[in-house]
């Protein structure tokens, strides 16, 4: 059992790959936004890949352990302490029953991940423990953690091994740099944008708005311009150039809502009536997850093949070869 002393800004139970199989009924995958860091945390404590852990956003929680456990923290640097003594990131450590783990605000990055050997064992909803708080499902009672709640833990007695650390070159390269090189695959609706519009997208700085969350990242930047496909279309597509007959949205879509691009992420809508000129591939999601309002994105167009190669490279790092002994 894990007792929530302070919940943090918005801390949720997540599992990977999330809620699969109900997308066509409107349920997003949810799951950890930076699954690179999340999966490494599970690997550190010896959990199965689909074990549930916590995603802590911007300011982390304070938690008291009801039993001994081996835990690991990865992702954003939230100045973690255990009974007020600093705790290392990217390393499995032993926690004793009654000890208090405390996370502060993120000095570097935005989202930290906590894995506990044995996993968090809230009741799965539609096959997953991932929280989708917009609709109140999954996690603990459907929402982010609240003060005083108790999280059930799996039977981790004897499981997990302390002193395991992720090699530095195998972690997401987090720095305090606020400018991100972001990959984007053209499509599905790249042919709705004219050449000047594509040039502005790829050559401009895009600033992350404060209204950004696990649903979408809103960006400020220059205006978009369109081809005849957007401006001369059948009336049922809608009036605005960015309107299209309702269609499915890929996760990672750069969804153009009027003139505002919104990158749709893990809890984003499954369908809607706006075009998606680009899609941010899964290998770049750790950058979305670790960026903050005010950060700048610079996009680079990549092919489907390059995006898949980058993802393969990350997947290969979720392996024992990435672990060293402390």
């Amino acid at each position: 059992m894990l007792e929530v002393i302070k919940p943090g800004l918005e801390t949720t139970v997540q599992d990977w790959p999330g809620r699969i199989g109900y997308w066509e009924q409107g349920f997003p995958f949810s799951g950890p936004m930076d699954d690179w860091s999340f999966r490494l945390a599970n690997l550190l404590v010896g959990n199965a890949a689909d074990a549930a852990g916590l995603e802590c956003q911007f300011t982390g929680p304070t938690l008291r352990f009801g039993r001994d456990a081996v835990i690991a923290l990865t992702g954003a640097a939230m100045q973690p302490t255990l009974d007020n003594a600093p705790l290392p990131l990217w390393e499995s450590v032993v926690v004793r029953a009654g000890q208090v783990l405390s996370l502060g605000f993120a000095r570097i990055g935005a989202r930290a991940y906590l894995a506990i050997a044995g996993g968090i064992e809230t009741a799965p909803v539609l096959g997953s423990r991932a929280t989708f708080h917009q609709a109140g499902i999954g996690g603990l009672d459907g929402y982010a953690l609240k003060e005083g709640q108790r999280l059930p833990l799996g039977t981790g007695d004897g499981a997990g091994e302390p002193g395991r650390r992720v090699r530095e070159e195998c972690r997401p390269p987090l720095t305090d740099e606020r400018v991100w090189q972001m990959e984007a695959v053209p499509g599905p609706n790249d042919d709705w944008i004219d050449e000047a519009g594509h040039r502005r997208f790829l050559e401009s700085d895009w600033t992350v708005q404060s209204r950004s969350n696990r649903t979408g990242f809103r960006l400020d930047g220059p205006a978009w311009s369109f081809t005849a496909k957007a401006t001369d279309k059948r009336p049922e597509h809608g009036e605005d150039p960015s309107n299209i007959l309702d269609h499915g949205y890929p996760v990672g879509a750069v969804n153009l809502c009027g003139q505002t691009p919104i990158i749709l992420v893990n809890d984003g809508p499954s369908t809607g009536g706006f075009i998606n000129p680009y899609t941010v591939p899964s290998a770049a999601f750790w950058k979305l997850a670790q960026s903050r309002p005010g950060d700048v994105y610079r996009f680079r167009a990549v092919s489907v093949e390059e995006a898949q190669d980058k993802r393969r490279a990350i997947n290969r790092l979720i392996a024992e070869s990435s672990i060293e002994r402390v």
Binding site: V185, P188, E236, L245, G252, A253, T279, A307
Partner: peptide, 18 residues
Amino acid sequence: FRPGGDRFIEMELGDEMS
């Protein structure tokens, strides 16, 4: 068929409400 990043493909069968 149009790609949606590395893990999605949009298959379009037409472009009218019908």
